[in-house]
Design a protein around this nucleic acid. Structure first.
Length: 615
RNA sequence: GGUUCCGUAGCUCAGCUGGAUAGAGCAACUGACUUCUAAUCCGUAGGUCACAGGUUCGAAUCCUGUCGGAAUCACCA
């Protein structure tokens, strides 16, 4: 739409100047695609001019329409309805457009702008397998990355892996005590699940230990002396868990010791840690591969958790930070309606936000990217607000390019996912389930019978993943979403497979058509309604990409692709392509189909969804 | 309590830089496969766009307030 709209805009401004002697601003008069119930391609809203020109909207519309038709050869005719000026473009304009899409696989992409941008997503912990929440994160991150690339940016994908801390020590300890001779190899369990199972085991054993302890005289004493007012025993011990872990727990003691050993670089601990992480990473890699995503660089918290101290030092010198009497370092953000925040503990160690600052600086040095996008759930909104504010106050070179792409958590129909209650949906299981569902559907239909098993499996994999990915990505990121497993495997209606099916139909028609003469398509000028809609929609694709890149919103692409597929399905049903009345019509429809196929493929690709040729 | 996000059909979601009669899918009911693949298409039914004000020629869209839901307000990450 960009070209036609700016063309109209330009001539509109000239016409307004000529007619009314007014200099109007660029976007005073909105130009939109004409609604399908009216005649025309683009609509100018004339209302904003009524006051300035002191005329009725319909008169203004007539006057502007006459001049535009005269001055713009692309405009064929116009009509004015209730102040809306509808402009029809000549068929040759649209014909030329459709023909320009033949063999133009990058249509819609914007030219390179030389800007570098970093996208951080996934960022898992090493103590549990990737789950549904990660899937949303990964799909958003991956597609935003691809969309930005299409919008002309140089994009780099990174993730930070939380590979240190007390959590991983719990897994290590549990395995040391209850499974020292077990490995993913000799148990046949995937690495991330293997390690995760020890984390769960630790929590179980710890709970047992805690429950036993609660019966002791020591616990009794603690309860009596530390309970608040008339707090019940149950409530007290529930809130006391972490303190118990640190002060009394035998398991807690051992885990803490392991953490100390790790921090001291003790050889055996490091070896175990490294071994367990390798198992986890092998598991993650498998899942990433299933999802079809990869990263340009991985950052490990074990290598970055000490970063940021030099920044704090510099910040103190610039008086951005201040030191408390106990030695801790703070920043006061009350001037921007945030709180005071610690950036360095009294023992001199970094806190989370300081590490993030340090990591950002490290990445800036690594990639020289002026934009850095963090794909992180909305529970961390406050954290990023603070982080970005600190970066601004420090005037670091990348401060203005930081962006938190916040997304809502994924709920199940039964409520929140809770690892403790075992309601977490593992990524691998989910993927397997949708692919299985795709297989069942396919077998019922029985249309792929003439293919080899390998070919069939590949198609079914694409369909299943399309269903899953589309189901998640079609919802705007900032919205909390409900994930119904039953609906996610649906393949009818607004789904990934529906869009794939439109593409498959097109491929099938093109295969049957064989070679055809595209040039005679330009003789066809009597577009039917369904064709007009499709052409208009194709024309808008570049601005959809631009907008979705600007908003970091893949759902805009997802909804566009669906609308296009829907229009194509209807057109396909209503009109013959191969058996069209004359050769020009047939040729045009083939060209248009090819263009639709190409845009569907391109847009779904931006979402990380692959298209099969048959299904 | 402060801050941020969300509230549109029974359910899941579009539409939001203000524009014409608020759209899809699912679920319900109904029709179309000797046809370029029916994972499709046509139709019926379903709405106080949470509520109340305001701005405007025009508000689901912008502003204010109220209600409801979520997140967050650690020297955890």
């Amino acid at each position: 739409m960009k070209n036609a709209a700016s063309l109209i805009q330009h001539h509109l401004n000239l016409a307004v100047k000529e007619l009314y002697g007014l200099d109007i601003s660029e976007n005073l008069l909105p130009i939109t695609p004409t609604r399908k119930e009216f005649q025309g391609d683009f609509t100018v809203v004339t209302f904003p001019l009524t006051k300035l020109a002191k005329k009725k909207p319909d008169i203004i519309g007539e006057e502007l329409g006459l001049i535009l038709v005269k001055n713009l050869p692309e405009i064929d005719s116009f009509n004015v309805i209730q102040g809306f000026l509808n402009l029809s473009f000549v068929p040759s304009f649209w014909n030329a457009f459709v023909l320009s899409l033949q063999d133009n696989p990058t249509f819609g992409e914007l030219p390179a702008n030389g800007e570098r941008v970093l996208v951080e997503f996934s960022s898992p912990n090493t103590n549990k397998p990737l789950h549904l929440g990660h899937i949303r994160n990964i799909l958003i991150g991956w597609s935003v990355s691809k969309i930005l690339k299409a919008a002309g940016f140089d994009v780099f994908n990174v993730q930070i892996i939380n590979d240190r801390g007390i959590a991983i020590c719990k897994s290590m300890l549990a395995r040391k005590i209850w499974g020292a001779d077990k490995t993913p190899e000799n148990t046949g369990i995937k690495g991330d699940f293997f390690v995760g199972s020890y984390y769960v085991l630790f929590e179980q054993k710890f709970q047992e230990e805690y429950a036993t302890w609660q019966l002791t005289a020591e616990a009794r004493e603690v309860f009596e002396s530390k309970k608040k007012d008339d707090q019940s025993e149950v409530a007290f011990f529930k809130s006391y868990k972490d303190l118990y872990f640190n002060a009394y727990s035998e398991l807690g003691k051992q885990a803490a010791e392991m953490l100390r050993n790790w921090e001291a670089g003790e050889e055996e601990t490091i070896a175990t840690w490294s071994q367990m992480n390798q198992w986890v990473y092998a598991g993650f890699d498998y899942t990433y591969k299933l999802l079809g995503v990869h990263f340009d660089k991985l950052y490990y918290e074990s290598e970055t958790y000490l970063l940021g101290k030099d920044i704090v030092q510099a910040g103190i010198e610039k008086s951005v930070f201040y030191k408390e009497a106990d030695g801790s370092v703070w920043i006061d953000l009350t001037d921007v309606k945030l709180d005071k925040k610690v950036v360095l503990r009294k023992d001199g160690t970094s806190v989370y936000i300081t590490q993030d600052l340090g990591t950002a600086e490290l990445r800036y040095d690594d990639f020289k990217a002026n934009k850095m996008i963090y794909v992180v759930a909305d529970e961390q909104n406050y954290h990023f607000q603070v982080l970005f504010e600190i970066a601004k106050k420090l005037k670091v070179p990348f401060a203005e390019g930081l962006h938190h792409l916040s997304y809502g958590m994924v709920d199940l129909p039964t409520g929140k996912m809770k690892s403790r209650e075992g309601t977490v949906v593992d990524a691998d299981d989910l993927i397997a389930e949708v692919v299985l569902e795709a297989r069942k559907n396919s077998e019922e239909r029985g249309v792929l019978a003439d293919l080899t098993d390998a070919e069939r499996s590949e198609i079914i994999r694409k369909i299943g993943l399309a269903a899953l990915k589309y189901f998640i990505i079609k919802v705007q990121p900032q919205k909390r979403m409900t994930f119904d497993p039953k609906e996610s495997v649906d393949m009818q209606g607004q789904t990934g497979p529906y869009i794939q099916n439109a593409f498959v139909r097109i491929q099938s028609v093109l295969r049957k058509a064989g070679d055809f003469d595209a040039n005679i398509a330009e003789n066809y000028i009597e577009f039917v309604l369904e064709e007009r809609e499709i052409i208009q929609q194709l024309y808008q694709y570049p601005s959809v990409i631009e907008e979705s890149a600007l908003q970091y919103d893949p759902s805009a692409i997802a909804n566009y692709a669906y609308a296009l597929a829907k229009n194509y399905h209807r057109f396909y049903h209503e009109h013959s392509i191969l058996k069209a009345d004359d050769l020009a019509v047939r040729s045009f429809r083939l060209c248009m189909s090819k263009a639709v196929g190409s845009v569907l493929n391109h847009s779904m690709n931006l979402l990380g969804i692959e298209m099969p040729d048959k299904m």
